[in-house]
Structures are given as structure tokens and as C-alpha cells.
Write a protein that binds this DNA or RNA. Structure first.
Lengths: 219, 219, 219, 219
DNA sequence: AATGAATGAGGGTTCATTCAT
DNA sequence: AATGAATGAACCCTCATTCAT
């Protein structure tokens, strides 16, 4: 087997804890206690805490980007003449997220928390690493998105992309808290599929909104 | 004076550091070093690190909520018969943000990072505190928002609210990083006012988007 | 007071342990336990274990070199015409050693262990630091020693210097063990003054020995 | 073959590392990595790290003592009437050192570092082991040395022996550093044979030096 | 004969906090 | 009102060693 049972237990425990508490708030002792393995096992299998974080990064970033790249390529080959709508593109992302999630309920929160971390000011190294590693695979997707958003300036596109990325990152990284709040306030529980689906029209509309002018006299 | 010079220096230093690094990544030593005060001063003036965080919470939450409450009340009195559009409501929020920002460039990032923190699973105490303290002042605003979004189910409203809250929290808490990225990619720098303004149509459109049906057969 | 009581206790405990066990074999926990202070006190007062080692380095190297420099200068002023014999020079060193020892029975062992450490292959940083810091003060002494050893080649001088430095470093850094051995074998105990005195003719004779020729046909 | 290929690789790697870094500074991981064998191999072949150290001890101590014992015996048989000069005795030691060195450039440094270790205060077990194991073989040699040094007191002999042992141990255990220093300062490199030869007159003269009297009034 | 996996003990360091002044 | 000194707890990591195969 490629990964030992212990390594898998560690990953599983780490993902759950990272998902709920974030990375730096999660200690090696918590991870190894939850995984029911020796404290030194993390360093044995992953070299360091940072190595563990990188392992989970790759575990989710790789298939996510791979999925996006593949699906974009397939779409362009099968229907080369038809334009790709924003809705279609966003659906691709949602399907990619479901794809990396597989059967691990903490996968998406942790994945999103990782993206969140990468935008921290003092995490330039992580940011650069992710750009180097994965930017190429996402280029095709971004180009299509940019094309659909053509009437927009580059800076408008930049900010809208991050507004909507923020929606995803915030709601999915805090998924468990929000589910609990929803339960408490509305006595209702949404499955993650439903949440992702709800995001589609909101993000799509946000992207296509007509930008306002003359903001200086407004605010 | 109500607050000693030392306390003010601490607050200023803490806000900058919290804004850039987050709360738990910021140490008392960093804060007191930057503020050029004694290490024990934070505990002396604020009781604990948590006390300091609570102090900055109140410093920004209070005027923010006060502003929203006031402006909503004024609007309802002056034009009681006219409905309040979503755009108008969102603009209120943006003006409230500019109002709490005042002259402190780190204020908004830190404020948003605080909201972010309050959605962490293990921060129920903070969450509860904020609800108890400020929910009443925001009730009027939320009622207006809910009214405009009337054709929506309660759960749809809940999630959209958080999608769009996520946009705000993510982009504003990582404001400095995003500015740097924009500078690097586009050789352009947006002032915070412009960013807030850009958010208005995106959030507004997101709120008003027509929700899709039959999602199960789509994803 | 310049150094707090705790810092002094730490230094005293550290010197004893370093003297008996060497530096890397001595743990912070041993030091703080012996000094009866908190584990974190070393880092508070000296920054790190390395900082503590540097502190003891300076505590002994500084007065030692200062002493040598002063005594050499005085000697040259008071009797400028008389040559300085090797015996006299070596006696200066021995007196300098007694001077740094003062009332601390571990001082000399530790001092010598430090010199020993500085010749380790992977301690180039320490070596360079000591050269930069103290070479100037010892230059005068070395010049006099070199002058007396004039019929020698530079490389012969280099090696003899280290042969005799080795005598000092080995016997003084292992002082306590050797005393114990002497006691055990001969039922006799030498005070450190006597040992230093014994070294004088041996080192002196070693320095002045007539070097052999034609070693290739001998060994 | 008596020793497996793996065991030989381990010994070779360990000797190099022990020679350069000392024993406790050298880790099992460093050894097994350099030897390109499994981490557990050391414990498998030598029982423990201490067992490995004991193995290299015996590898060098045994032939060294054997050599000395043999050569002393041969000398006494072939020329029973002629006294053995100190110079001759010291040359024996040097030839014994060259004999154990064979073709391994790290052998002598490591051997000397071992002797150094055995004088550490907390290494009484090692010290006792070496005395038990090898004292008998060196008795003859020491007796001859003692006879030549007859006008000396026993304690004087004890200390001079260690002064000169210190010369050897220090210069040979730090052989690589000293070679580098010589190269750097004098642009010259001495082979080990030359260094050993240089030691002969120095040690010899040290042993035969006339001891000084009345030291109390001098220092 | 040999090894990948795993472990318990202990390493130095850093944290927020408290105490005595 | 303020601070230098000191602390207990916890941090990540590395060590030599052992176990199951």
C-alpha cells in the first residue's frame, strides 16, 4: 500500500481538526491524540507540521485543479463552437468541489481554509508555491471566465473574482458553524450539495452585475 | 483623558498586527514591542489578550452598529412610505464601514478578521457575546433586508446573507494582500472606497438573483 | 545590580554542569533544576542556550585576554630592554588562568572546554567569533612568544603552540576527573595552583626542544 | 566473511562522523544515511549506539595496545642490556598510531576522541572498561617510561603523562581543523606523519624537563 | 539478514500570564 | 500607573530504540 494505516489516520484526524480550528490553532498533540498514534508519527511520515499541511494541500489541490483542467478541455473539444456561459463555468467549479470532497465531510472546509491561509499577508511563500504549482492548470478556466466577463476592466474582474472567491471560502470553511446556526435558527439542515447549488445563481449574478458609476458622489 | 497614552499605543499596534496576521498569530511580545511599551502593559490595561481583543471588538462594533441603527431609523422617519431598496441598504453598510474606519488604515481588516473569527467552530463564546451585545441594534436593518428579499425562503435568505457576508469579510480582511496582488498583476492600486463601491452592485445582484430549481438533476 | 540573582544562579549552575559534562550534553532542564529556577528563565535572561554559552564565554575570555594584554604591556614598559623569556610568558598565562578562576572551582574547566569546543570542525562560527573578538588582545603576547621561538619555522611554531595548548586544554578541562584518578591511584590531591605550576617547565621545555631532522627515515 | 558488508559500511561512516563531530553530536540517522543503510541496521549489528562506539573502540584500541606490547617485548629481548630512551618510547607510540591508522584518514581523530571521551567525568563506565581491557598490555610500556623518568615523584609523573597525552589527544582529535587552519594561515599542509614526528621532540623534552621548585612564591 | 514503521522520552523554545516592587 | 523579573504550560521537533515482518 502506498500510505500506511498510521499516515491515513493522521491525515483524517488532521483534516477534521484543521477544518474546525484552522492550522495554527491545531496542535500536533491534538492530531496524534485524535488519530490514536504516537506524537512522533507525524514527523516520521510527513517530516514536520508544515509537511503535513503541504500533504493535505496537495491531496485536495491536485485533484481539484486536475478536474478543472480536464473538464475545461473536454468541453472545448466536444462543443468548440458554443460559448461557455458563466453559469456553466461556476457549475464546473461546484462539481470539482464535490469531486475532491468524495466521502470526507471535512475535506471542503479544510481545502477552503487553506485557500484562506494563502491570502494571509505573511504567507507569501505558500502563496507563491501554490501559484507555481497550480496556476498553469487553472489558466484555461480563468481565460474562459475572463472572456465572458469581457465588458469589464481588468481591475473590476480582479475584484469581482475575489468577492466571489470570498463567498466560497467563507461559507465552506465555516460550513460546520453555519450548518449549526441554520439548525438553531431555522430548525433545518442543508446538505453541502444544496449549499453549493445555492451559490451558483448568486455568484453568477454577482459576476454579471452592471457596475455602478460615479461612486465618489454616492459614498 | 479616558484612555492612557499607553493603552492607546497598544490598541494602535494591536490593530495593525491583528489586521495583518490574525489574532492567534499575533503575540503579546509583538504588540508591546511595536507599541514600545512594557510586556505586562497589555494585561495591566486590558486584563488579558482576550480582553484586548474584546476592546478592539467594541471599539469598532459599537459605532458600526450604532451607525446602522441610526441611519435605518432616520430613513424610516424621513420617508416612511417609500420602500428601501437593497442597493440603498448595502450602501448603508458601506458607509457604516467607512465611518468606523475613520483614519485607521487597519481598522476594517481587523474588524472583518474579528467577524471571521466569530464564525470559528470553537468560538461560540465570542459569537454568543456578539449576538447578545449587538443583535438588537441590527434587527431593524435585517428586517428591511428580509422584506426586500421576500420571495425567498428563510433558508435561502440565510445562506445568501452569508455568501455576501463572506465576500466582505474575505476581501476586506485580506485587503492588504489583495492590494499588493493587484499592484503586482495590474500595476494599479485601488483605494478602499473604490473597493467598497465595487462591492455594491455585486452583492446587490447576488441578493436578487433568481434561484435555480431542480438542482439535484444538475449537479 | 547589573545581573539579577536568578541570572547569577543560572550562570553558576551552568558553569558547573558545562565543566563536568560539556555543552551539548548539558540540558536546559539540568541547568534550571540545579539553579532552582524556572525552565524559561534561561531564555528570559540569555535568549537561548547558545546565548548562555556566549555569556560564559565572555565572562572568562574577556578578563583573561584583558589580563594578558595588560601584563604584557606593563612588562614591556617597565623593562623594555630585557628580553622576555618563554618561562616568563608561560607564567603569565598561568597567572591569567588563576585570575579568571577567582573563587569558582569550575571556571577553568569550563573555560578550557570552551576552547576545546572552538576547535571542533563544525564550530567555525564560534571560532571566527573568538578570533574577531579577542585576537587583537592576544597579538602582543603571541609576538613575544614567536620572537623567543625565532629559530623555528612558522609551521613548527604553529604545531608546537597547539601541542602545548592541547596540554592545557586537556588537563584543565578534565581537571576533576584527573584529580579523582590521582586520588585513587596515589592517594594524593593536587591543588590547581600546583598543577598549573607543574605545567610551566613541561610546556617551556616542549617549546624549546630541538627539532629532529630526517623524520622520513625514522618513522 | 566475519563482518557483513552493511556492518563495514556503518563502521566507516561512523568513524568519519565521530572524527569530525564527536560521539554524542553524531546521530544514528547521520550514520545510517552516510552508510546508505537502514536506520535500524546499527542496532541490529551493534546492539546500540554505545555498542557501535565500543566496536570502534576495540577496532583501534586492540591493535594499538597489541602493537605496543609486542614492540616493547621484542625490544627487551633483542637488546636486554641497553636502556630504552624516552625518545625511543615515544617513537614507538607514534609508530603504533600510524599502524592503527592504516588507510583510514579518520581513524586517528576518532581514536583520540575516544580517549578524550573516556576522561569525561560521567564516563566512568567507559574508563573502567578500558582499564580492565587494556591496562595489562600497556603495563610494560608504562614501566619503561616510568623508569626513565625515575628522578620524578609519582605525582609529577602522573601529571606529565597527562600533559603530554593531552597534546596528542587535542592535536590529533582536531587534526582536520588544525590542518585547515594551517592551510589558511600559512598556505601549507602537513601530512599526519610529519605532525606525529614533530610531536616527538616536544613530548620528549616535556617529559625530561627539570621541574621548578618553590612554586608557591612564584605564582 | 534486514527493514519500514512506530514509539516513549526528552530536547530547546515560546507562550500568555503573574508577581513584587 | 507601570514595569522588570519570573513562571507553568505547552509548543514542535529529534533522539535512540524496538517491533512486526
Amino acid at each position: 500500500m502506498q500510505q500506511s494505516k498510521t499516515a491515513i489516520q493522521i491525515l483524517k484526524a488532521a483534516e477534521a481538526l484543521f477544518s474546525e480550528q484552522g492550522f495554527s490553532e491545531t496542535t500536533m498533540r491534538q492530531i496524534t491524540a485524535k488519530a490514536d498514534v504516537n506524537l512522533a508519527a507525524v514527523n516520521y511520515h510527513f517530516g514536520s507540521k508544515q509537511g503535513l499541511i503541504q500533504a493535505v494541500t496537495e491531496k485536495y489541490m491536485h485533484p481539484f485543479c486536475e478536474y478543472i483542467e480536464t473538464v475545461v478541455a473536454e468541453r472545448l473539444i466536444s462543443l468548440p463552437d458554443r460559448t461557455v456561459s458563466i453559469n456553466e463555468l461556476i457549475e464546473m467549479v461546484m462539481r470539482a468541489l464535490l469531486h475532491v470532497r468524495q466521502d470526507n465531510e471535512h475535506a471542503l472546509s479544510m481545502f477552503m481554509r487553506l485557500l484562506d491561509l494563502s491570502y494571509m499577508k505573511n504567507q507569501e511563500a505558500l502563496r507563491q508555491y501554490m501559484v507555481n504549482q497550480y496556476h498553469a492548470k487553472l489558466e484555461g478556466f480563468l481565460a474562459l471566465l475572463r472572456k465572458d466577463a469581457s465588458p469589464m476592466d481588468s481591475d473590476e474582474f480582479f475584484w469581482r473574482l475575489h468577492f466571489l472567491l470570498g463567498s466560497m471560502i467563507f461559507t465552506l470553511s465555516n460550513y460546520h458553524t453555519l450548518i449549526a446556526l441554520e439548525q438553531q435558527e431555522l430548525e433545518k439542515t442543508s446538505e453541502i450539495e444544496k449549499i453549493l447549488h445555492r451559490m451558483i445563481p448568486v455568484i453568477s449574478a454577482g459576476f454579471q452585475a452592471r457596475s455602478e458609476q460615479n461612486y465618489f458622489c454616492r459614498l
